[in-house]
Design a protein around this nucleic acid. Structure first.
Lengths: 338, 338
DNA sequence: TTGAAAGCGCTAACAA
DNA sequence: TTGTTAGCGCTTTCAA
């Protein structure tokens, strides 16, 4: 591998000039810059990351800490990971991905070894033991998700509360007189994710304001079994106009399947709003009216925060909520129907 | 952050001794080792990754190059990513994740900057432009997936051909007299993934050996629409005993939904074998007899190869195929039925 | 069994 | 606008 010294020699300049051409931290004449860049290209020069990190104090790597074990739905995390890496790449940063149940040790390692410049922490729980550690790392940390105590760290999240409200508002506006929210099975609810409660609270509050009865149903057991047990209570009172809010992709699938079995027509006999990405909403046999959790948007904002904290030395502790977006599809009647 | 020099001073030894305690590359007396380790703990010492990479020539980081854009199913990649990172962590390695459509530039960067010690390349296509570059990187590269020309690189893959055969064999053994393989919509087939052809070839070959008619059906358009158009041909001749092989999670869902609509009972009126993980197979309303693509196993073997190439200097170019595993569930009748 | 010292390849003062 | 030079924190000869 060619070094910056090689480049300097070939270009007939000093090594520091090569460095300044790369970093742009001091003015370089056009002629010199051209010579250096030609030499770099000719030698296929890449600056050694280790040396760079050692001398400057930037690694150009950020750490992404995810806990896949706890994550609600697998497919759901990927858009975050994807957007985080692309946003990083756009700034010439790389991403070290850590998948650990308890990321505490990993974070201490990443920061302690000066392997990364900043950390993005995902899957935040209402009571999250990792945050105390994260706050003492000495490098910027941005949370994707909210905790009851963010320990002064910047946080970005989807506005789940507003999302729950939006789903209910759509159902009410389309004429439904009874709302059911399909909640989490006990394993997930026990995980202490703030967004589950937030979504449900938002839904309940919106129903209260609209003076429409609402009930949150939670399967006793996971899987289709739990869904079947819930079916009678779920479909109860549907003659008056029933609106179902499904909080997960899995729940959407189940509701659609249940309606097939019962020969109920989505959007006519029963209205359904799901919380899922647009792509998924469109893939169902009957396209689902959905509230999108905007993973791309959330990740993009989180990365903007990261670079913000890296460039300027702003005070941290800000919270950014990404608003939900509802798209009307075939599982809800046109507004004002009935 | 404490440095190894600080540790050396506190322990009353030289800096090189501290280094040797960490690397274990020369014998250290028990007493000295104890002193040094105490000092390291007291100072919360973490060796600086950049300095280490610069002086030694190991970064203890491996690169994982994925192309999420092209990937067939999103949820399917996560187990690979998860296992790769865990296997790395077990060896005190970190993973830099790159998501790029064309990973060529990324690989050159990762290797050129000496950011990683080795690379794992995923989503290999039959004709994969990236492999020529990968082969000249000067660091170990292990492929997850097969190409027509592996360029002398080590490759690990699931045995899709055998998997296709296994699915058909199960259906034939359970008494089905006609086999339909539900293939890919045109966008995916066009991606030139060897595993699609491999799976289908394996299925066709097995049917030929068993002298059972087989047909591969490919939806014209993506989504449920394409599925509906296929329905008549799919269900054709089911009176004689029809066995369906669904190659993707999506296809399994569709087949189950179609059977619901047609009031056909899976495992009785029609037999179904799906290619998907055990976890997914169990989550369907009727648990699906499945062939598992064993992502954990594949990733584990791939990582073993990586460390093998890193430690010893073996010749590369080996191919490892992970055998499929079929689990009988409720969508196929007990063997010998009918 | 241990220490001293010379770099690894870059960045960033300090000079000119 | 450019060059000189002193490190960054580790690994690894070479000596003892």
């Amino acid at each position: 591998m060619a070094t910056s010294k090689d480049v300097a020699e070939l270009a007939g300049v000093s090594q520091s000039t090569v460095s300044y051409v790369m970093t742009g931290k001091r003015p370089i004449s056009a002629a010199t810059r051209a010579k250096v860049e030609a030499a770099m290209a000719q030698l296929r020069f890449h600056p050694n990351a280790g040396a760079r990190a050692l001398a400057g104090r930037r690694t150009n790597v950020i750490g992404l800490v995810v806990r896949l074990g706890v994550t609600t739905d697998m497919a759901g995390v990927l858009p975050f990971i994807d957007t985080v890496t692309s946003e990083a790449a756009a700034r010439d940063f790389d991403v070290v991905l850590v998948t650990a149940e308890d990321g505490t040790a990993s974070m201490l390692r990443l920061a302690g070894r000066s392997l990364v410049d900043a950390i993005v922490l995902m899957d935040i729980q209402a009571h999250d033991e990792r945050l105390a550690t994260a706050a003492t790392l000495g490098i910027p940390v941005v949370l994707i998700g909210l905790s009851t105590d963010n320990h002064g760290l910047d946080a970005v999240d989807f506005d789940f509360r507003r999302a729950g409200a939006l789903a209910v508002e759509e159902l009410v506006a389309s004429g439904q007189r009874r709302i059911v929210v399909l909640g989490e099975p006990p394993e997930v609810a026990a995980k202490d994710f703030g967004f589950v409660a937030g979504f449900e609270d938002g839904a309940v509050e919106a129903a209260r304001l609209a003076e429409v009865p609402i009930v949150v149903l939670r399967p006793e057991v996971a899987g289709w079994r739990g869904m079947l047990e819930l079916a009678p209570r779920l479909l109860e009172g549907r003659e008056d106009g029933l609106g179902i809010v499904a909080r997960t992709p899995q729940a959407i699938t189940w509701v659609q399947q249940l309606m097939f079995i019962e020969r109920l027509e989505p959007g006519h006999d029963i209205a359904l709003v799901g919380l899922c990405t647009d792509a998924l909403a469109q893939s169902f046999s009957v396209p689902v009216t959905n509230v999108s959790p905007e993973p791309d948007q959330v990740s993009r904002v989180a990365m903007a925060r990261v670079f913000d904290l890296l460039d300027t030395d702003r005070p941290a502790g800000r919270i950014h909520l990404v608003p939900p977006r509802l798209t009307h599809r075939e599982t809800t009647p046109p507004r004002g129907d009935r």
